[in-house]
Amino acid sequence: MELPIVLWSLRMTPSQATSYMPFFMVYGSEAILPTDLDYGAPRVRAYDEQGAEASLEDAMDQLDEACNDALLRSAKYQQDLCWHHGHLVQGQAFNIGDLVLCLIQDNKNCHRLSLPWEGAYVITEVLRPRTYKLKTIDDRVFINTWNIE
C-alpha cells in the first residue's frame, strides 16, 4: 500500500542531474497535488478556462526550452562525475609482501550469501604496474598473475 506514495514522492523530487522533477519531464507540466484541489491552492483558484489555451501554447514553448536545459544540465552532471572519478578516486598500488584478497571470477557454485573474495595471498613480485604474482600464505605459489584492473 505504500508503493504509490513512494513512487509519487520519487516523481515529485527534482533530479540532481537535471534539477527538474521526473513528472515534469514526462508530462510537461507541474503536478497538482490532491490537497491543492481539496483546499483551493492559489494556483488552482487562479485557473482561467479562457486563458488556458494561450497558456498551453506558452507552456509548450517553455517545455522545449526546459528539455534543452535538462539535456545540458545532465551532460554537465555526467562530465562532473567523470572528472570526480578521474581525479579524486585513486588507484591502488601494492608492494611486495602485502596481503591481498582476490575476487572470485567463477561464481557458478556460489549462492548470494557467499563471499566474493578468496585468499589471503601475499604479493611476491610486481610484474608491471597493477600486475602482480601471488602466493598463498603457506608458501604455495599461485600460478596465475593477478591484474587489479
Rank of each mutant, 00 (worst) to 15 (best):
A66W: 01
L56E: 14
Y132N: 04
L71V: 04
D69H: 14
V6G: 02
N144M: 08
L63R: 15
Y132A: 01
K135H: 08
E53N: 03
S55P: 04
W117Y: 13
I123E: 00
P4S: 01
S19T: 11
E49R: 07
R112W: 07
A93P: 05
L72P: 01
R140K: 04
M60H: 14
W83F: 04
T35C: 15
D98I: 03
Q16M: 08
P116K: 07
I143W: 12
I143S: 15
E65T: 04
M12V: 04
G51E: 13
P116T: 07
Y121N: 00
L56S: 15
P34W: 03
A59K: 10
M25N: 02
L81A: 11
M60K: 15
V100Y: 04
L63N: 12
Y121R: 00
G91E: 14
F24Y: 14
I32T: 13
P42S: 07
G51S: 11
T124L: 13
A31R: 00
T13M: 04
A70K: 08
S19P: 06
G51C: 06
T145L: 00
L10C: 11
N147Q: 10
N109V: 00
E149F: 01
L127T: 02
C67F: 07
Q90S: 02
H87M: 04
H87V: 01
S74I: 11
D38R: 14
L56C: 12
A54R: 06
F24A: 10
A75W: 11
F94A: 02
L134I: 03
R43T: 10
P4C: 01
T35I: 13
Y47H: 12
P116A: 12
F142N: 05
I96V: 14
H87E: 05
I104R: 00
Q62R: 06
L127P: 02
M60N: 14
R128F: 07
P22D: 12
V26E: 12
L113Y: 08
A17Y: 06
P34F: 02
R43M: 12
I104H: 00
A52W: 00
A17Q: 09
I5V: 08
L33A: 06
C102A: 10
R128W: 09
A46N: 06
Q62G: 08
Q78D: 02
L71A: 06
A31L: 10
P129Y: 02
P22E: 12
H87W: 05
P116Y: 04
I148M: 08
K76T: 13
H87F: 04
Y47G: 07
N147S: 08
I5A: 13
E49T: 07
E57S: 07
H85K: 15
L103V: 10
Q105D: 11
Y132E: 04
L101F: 05
I32Y: 10
A46C: 03
S114A: 05
W83G: 02
P4G: 01
Q79L: 14
Y27V: 01
Y20E: 15
L33D: 14
M25H: 02
L10T: 03
H111R: 13
M1A: 12
M12W: 09
M1Q: 08
P4H: 01
L81F: 07
